[in-house]
């Protein structure tokens, strides 16, 4: 399934990233490589600096130590090749849905026909066809986040940055959107960093799961989930490997100071 160059060419590379807020260190020695089209889920308790990490990757804030590079270039500010999906949706309340979805395209100065074409394509892709003329406040949280996703996708980035995008949604909507996200990513694969504090979500979506420790945020361990593309989330949930990984992560999250018993299957694949 994976092509051979994936392992060799990280799209995104973090090297020794350290971040302080005043005298408080929030991130320490973060090294991450994200391969082309890889979905990396970052799992950690609240306050472990997950969101800060994502903002550094996006170039919204800078790190004091180490560096982030995108295709070999140092990231020193936001760039159009990366698009963020925000936890609180981040839609403009005074813009209609189609205007919100086309926002990034207008910022990039695309011509009107191109914007219309891409907006209608991504509106359909996220299942919002027919709601173009609505304002965000007229839509449910799930639909608002679909729009947030469509806006990021329409920008046609190489990397999608997902900041707990489904955290504010109810359980059912959340599961629907997880499946939709994977379906969309099948259709148009991209590298993705997906921040979450849900063990299930990290496993269901991730090609690789990276677990962080709190205060300061450090990488605790990471592993390939090995579930492959085109996964069926329902079948996955019932599977043995999923259950084992879930249990392992649960133990790990419960005891932040000691590593749980290793599971042999973890290092397979």
């Amino acid at each position: 399934m994976s092509s051979s160059d994936n392992g060799l060419n990280p799209t995104l590379r973090l090297q020794g990233v350290g971040k302080w807020f005043g005298s408080l260190q929030v991130l320490e020695e973060i090294d991450i490589d994200v391969k082309t089209q890889e979905i990396l889920t970052v799992l950690g308790p609240s306050g472990c600096g997950k969101t800060t990490l994502l903002r550094i990757v996006n170039g919204l804030i800078l790190c004091e130590r180490g560096e982030v590079s995108f295709k070999g270039e140092v990231v020193d500010g936001p760039r159009p090749e990366m698009a963020m999906v925000f936890q609180n949706f981040g839609l403009f309340p005074w813009k209609r849905l189609d205007q919100n979805i086309g926002y990034a395209l207008r910022i990039q100065g695309k011509d009107k026909n191109e914007i219309d074409r891409l907006v209608s394509h991504y509106t359909e892709l996220v299942g919002l066809g027919g709601f173009e003329a609505n304002y965000p406040s007229q839509l449910s949280g799930g639909m608002q986040q679909r729009a947030g996703l469509a806006r990021a996708l329409a920008a046609q980035p190489d990397v999608l940055l997902m900041d707990e995008p489904f955290g504010a949604l109810d359980a059912l909507t959340r599961e629907t959107l997880q499946e939709e996200l994977l379906r969309i990513n099948e259709a148009e694969p991209k590298a993705m960093i997906f921040i979450t504090h849900s063990i299930d979500e990290a496993l269901l979506l991730g090609d690789r799961v990276l677990v962080m420790t709190p205060r300061p945020g450090r990488i605790r361990f990471q592993f390939e989930t090995g579930f492959g593309r085109g996964r069926d989330l329902e079948a996955l949930r019932g599977g043995k490997r999923f259950q084992a990984l879930r249990h392992y992560l649960w133990e790990a999250m419960r005891n932040p100071d000691e590593e749980p018993e290793p599971i042999p299957e973890l290092n397979l694949e």
């Binding site: 903002r55 996006n58 919204l60 936001p78 760039r79 159009p80 698009a83 963020m84 925000f86 609180n88 981040g90 403009f92 005074w94 813009k95 926002y103 990034a104 207008r106 910022i107 990039q108 920008a155």
Partner: peptide
């Protein structure tokens, strides 16, 4: 402020930011 961050994240120029966010 979170919308301000949205405009920054999508590489908005200052004048675009006024149009999309600050004036409204």
């Amino acid at each position: 402020l979170s919308l301000l961050e949205v405009t920054r994240s999508f590489c908005s120029t200052e004048s675009q930011r006024w149009r999309d966010l600050i004036f409204p």
